[in-house]
């Protein structure tokens, strides 16, 4: 970090922390908001954190990209306002998260956005499936956002402080998103018979994808172990999935949605729910995880085209910036 640079800053850091923190120390110290840009974190930590935060940031952007057609297609003026505001918030979350990822010193935001455009950047499974109709919007805006919110709430205690700070603001805003989605679902399920049927159909299409949001069981997940040992990740996929089902199965039923027969979901004696994971299409899930699922590729490419079409504006602004601040890293006095 610039502000503690210079010989004195370096000297202080060496006194306090030694040079690069070793993994064992990281694991010992890994509490909430424990590490920040002034800590000389080992590359393994910085890479793992970058992977996780970049995924999160990419998901915000691709979720917004998925929902953007419904700003236009919203069936009332106030819903249109809400959809625009929600999409705006998501870009805002992307902004916070890319900055938190940048602060790890592995990749710049431009590099991460280029990776997203090139199909190398990974993001949530649900945002690979395009939406055709308004009745699908609460599947994202209520169920997926509700699921995301649960995960995000735990990330306020992640060990990378800039990530936790981003989560403070993200979680603050997210309540609007979920309730906006819930309001749309409520409106559809108390609307005409046709609307109710269309919504049920959309629910059946999206339900397995929503459950897969939390990924495979922890024994199949490759990155989970390290990320939780160093305090980046706070709850396991299994815990999060169970918590989601416990709260959203009753909600879906309350609004009159019928839970599809597959995947099979069983209710335990203590009232909690368990999903039979063998009923889910993991081939498709892992195809998506590699950015190879055809409709998702269309989403990625569509966004790429849009990003490239305005490259000239960024270049022009870069020239302008250099005219004021020169080519150096830190801004000089503007006058």
């Amino acid at each position: 970090m610039q502000s503690i640079g210079g010989p004195i800053g370096k000297w202080l850091l060496t006194i306090v922390y030694g040079r690069e923190m070793d993994i064992e120390t990281v694991k010992e110290r890994a509490g909430p908001r424990e590490f920040s840009a002034k800590d000389d974190m080992p590359e393994e930590y910085r890479k793992a954190a970058t992977r996780m935060i970049q995924f999160h940031a990419n998901s915000e952007i691709m979720g917004a990209y998925l929902e953007r057609p419904f700003i236009r297609q919203a069936p009332s003026l106030e819903r249109k306002l809400a959809f625009s505001a929600k999409t705006q918030d998501e870009l805002g979350h992307g902004q916070l998260l890319y900055r938190a990822a940048e602060s790890l010193g592995i990749k710049t935001r431009d590099e991460m956005l280029d990776e997203l455009a090139n199909g190398e950047g990974k993001f949530l499974n649900c945002f690979h499936y395009p939406m055709e109709s308004w009745v699908e919007t609460p599947m994202i805006a209520f169920f997926v956002d509700g699921a995301a919110m649960r995960r995000q709430a735990t990330l306020k205690n992640t060990s990378w402080e800039p990530y936790a700070h981003a989560m403070d603001k993200v979680c603050f805003e997210e309540g609007f998103h979920v309730k906006h989605g819930e309001a749309i679902l409520h409106e559809l399920m108390t609307g005409s018979k046709k609307e109710q049927e269309m919504t049920q159909e959309a629910f059946e299409k999206w339900w397995p994808r929503i459950i897969q949001f939390f990924g495979p069981t922890d024994k199949q997940s490759t990155h989970h172990g390290f990320a939780s040992e160093v305090g980046l990740k706070q709850m396991s996929n299994d815990e999060l999935r169970r918590a989601f089902l416990n709260s959203y199965v009753p909600k879906a039923e309350k609004y009159g949605l019928e839970i599809p027969d597959t995947p099979r979901i069983t209710k335990n004696d203590d009232g909690t729910y368990e999903v039979n994971e063998d009923d889910l299409d993991w081939d498709e899930f892992f195809q998506i995880a590699k950015n190879e699922y055809e409709p998702g590729v269309g989403q990625i490419d569509g966004r790429k085209k849009a990003q490239e079409a305005v490259a000239w504006v960024r270049e022009s602004m870069d020239k302008h910036e250099q005219g004021i601040y020169g080519g150096g890293e830190s801004p000089q006095a503007a006058d």
């Binding site: 509700g146 919110m149 649960r150 995000q152 709430a153 979680c171 603050f172 805003e173 997210e174 309540g175 609007f176 979920v178 309730k179 906006h180 819930e182 309001a183 409520h186 709260s247 959203y248 909600k251």
Partner: peptide
Amino acid sequence: TYNFEAAAEEVAAS
């Protein structure tokens, strides 16, 4: 603005 009963606890906090 979206008047529903309080949702899950993470929504309520937000």
